[in-house]
Design a binder for these strands. Structure first.
Lengths: 337, 337
DNA sequence: ATCCGGTTCTTGAACGATCCAACCACGCAG
DNA sequence: CTGCGTGGTTGGATCGTTCAAGAACCGGAT
């Protein structure tokens, strides 16, 4: 079992000093081409790799990002964050960064973990998810001058200033609604979450916009909506309530795949079209039309923000709003009965 | 912005030497109670936290575990690994360990990443998932003397010797089959994967055992089976094929929720019971009976193996085989038609 | 011969923790 | 009074890297 080579080992074998070897790796232009090649070949031969611990101790940079694993919720919409996580890890790896995970029960716990990870110098920056009104985490990080980007817009007034990337939910539900209108539907209901959640209100807005643009009045009685907590059961109840009326809708736009999945059996039986949101694997499995978020692009953007900020601190925070894509499947491909 | 306190800062403020402060943290029994309390209060007051980079440089321990993020497959069964990942992170955090993620396209790529993570001293150990016949990863790690545990049995002959934890798949399908037998079913078919996958063969074995124990002959024509690749579409085709026969089965035991989900619509229409495997969120959403894997316990076990091995190297590898639990839902609660 | 600006490389000193051996005071037996 | 073991504490060395400053070299102008 050979000893792990260090800078000194390489330096000695190549007949140069430590620092020169270090320069070959970190500032190649400071070393003569001839020397550089010689050192490099010794590095390759010995299989030398710099100790990140030592480097980190000196530079105070760990080339590691912190990311929170959310407690799984209903497990359907939860897959969105898992796919985002996967994309972030892949992107980070391409740029020579690693991703360190942690779990936290709430915002306070997460901030406590942030403090610990920073104090012990384990991470350089964070990628946050699932922001909400009055989110205390972003303020804390901004106050400490930590680089971070958020997957999710800063909701609330005045909007906190920081880097973020988000998907235009309103554009998604608007596209879904326009697609249903194009298929001949006129009574298109919305199944969403109670008012107050930024994401939910945003998705509802897109549905309204499309109806108004078509000259329909969402406030009128013939274009109803249901607001309920997220979940499959809630979706089923909402569908039951909507479809039982005399002037039942012929199509449902849902704020999530969970809601849509719950509504689907009843809607199918009634010949009512359904569109979900998030394009989770389940949607593909059961033939549910859904709005797909470009998660790989979102990960790329968030990572870009963070790495740029680390490289040139103090630059104005970047923001990105990405367009989602409607995926049409059997659940919404026909005209109204 | 105050400077981060170090051991020296604390030592000076408490009127003792560096080493005493270090002992308070790492070997409290070597320090007089009075001194210990005084130092501890200074630590709390200054908010001191040891630099992990420095500690790691000296001790060659990072208190970090490596874990691979699998490329998402069909996204239904994929949630199993995500839930396992979450449980591992939570458990590790309780023990003062962190989890570092990486992605790899194949076994070779993963081994390359293992080498890099070890050479740069970023992780102490690994938790692997999804072992298969002739897996090269475990042999490599064993050869380098690296601590690791695997979620999944070592398949193949002779079985590689290392720590692992797995869920008894045969027990799961056996329980599912017995449950169907108890409900009066006699023609119970199996929908599984092609022979050769350890996990798939194991799950099939449980189904056979239960039938044989009841005096039924799985080889006879009236108890058929279908072997097909995993996926929702494949499940639907398998169900179509099975249910079209003259002596169609009254119940299906499936090797995965994906297969079960595909089979479910046709089976429902034919009054045929269905049981899936993995108890993914989708199963709960659509009322599909399924076999639940105790993922939190599996994570706890895998972590226990790894931490024990790190603490006392050379101990014989531990193994755990956990019992799954059948979750009965609407898809299998009735007697045969 | 002397000086000089510029490149190329080397040397000493950190970074912040732990390991090691020496040190000290103390009580106790010879 | 001396010698000795012991629990508690101390300073020095060390892990492997990067930063800051200085040394060696070289061609050209004075």
């Amino acid at each position: 079992m050979p000893e792990r080579p260090t800078l000194m080992t390489v330096a000695h074998a190549a007949g140069v000093s430590r620092q020169t070897v270090s320069n070959v790796l970190n500032a190649p232009d400071r070393v003569q081409a001839l020397t550089r090649d010689r050192v490099q070949s010794v590095i390759d031969e010995l299989g030398y790799r710099p100790s990140l611990a030592a480097r980190q101790l000196r530079t105070r940079r760990s080339r590691t990002l912190g990311l929170r694993m959310e407690p799984e919720r209903d497990g359907i919409n939860g897959t969105v964050l898992d796919r985002f996580l996967h994309a972030v890890v892949a992107r980070a790896q391409e740029s020579g960064y690693r991703v360190l995970l942690y779990v936290a029960d709430d915002d306070t716990g997460e901030t406590r973990t942030h403090a610990e990870l920073l104090d012990t110098a384990q991470v350089d920056a964070f990628v946050l998810t699932s922001t909400h009104h009055g989110d205390p985490r972003t303020a804390w990080l901004t106050g400490r001058g930590v680089a971070f980007s958020v997957f999710g817009r800063p909701w609330g007034e005045p909007a906190p200033v920081h880097a973020w990337v988000d998907v235009d939910g309103a554009a998604g539900t608007r596209a879904a609604t326009e697609h249903l209108l194009a298929n001949g539907h006129r009574r298109i209901a919305f199944v969403g979450w109670p008012p107050g959640s930024g994401v939910g209100d945003d998705r509802r807005a897109g549905w309204r916009q499309a109806l108004v643009a078509e000259g329909l009045d969402p406030a009128a009685h013939d274009v109803p909506e249901q607001r309920c907590p997220d979940g499959v059961d809630a979706g089923e109840q909402a569908a039951r309530s909507l479809l039982s009326g005399a002037t039942a809708p012929t199509a449902l736009v849902c704020a999530s795949d969970s809601l849509a999945l719950g509504a689907l059996p009843l809607a199918r039986a009634a010949g009512c079209a359904v569109v979900g949101f998030d394009d989770t694997p389940v949607a593909a499995a059961v033939g549910l039309s859904s709005v797909r978020q470009p998660l790989a692009e979102a990960a790329r953007a968030a990572l870009g923000h963070v790495l740029d900020e680390l490289e040139t601190p103090g630059r104005p925070p970047q923001v990105d709003l990405l367009a989602p894509e409607l995926v049409v499947r059997a659940s919404s491909s026909g005209p109204p009965d």
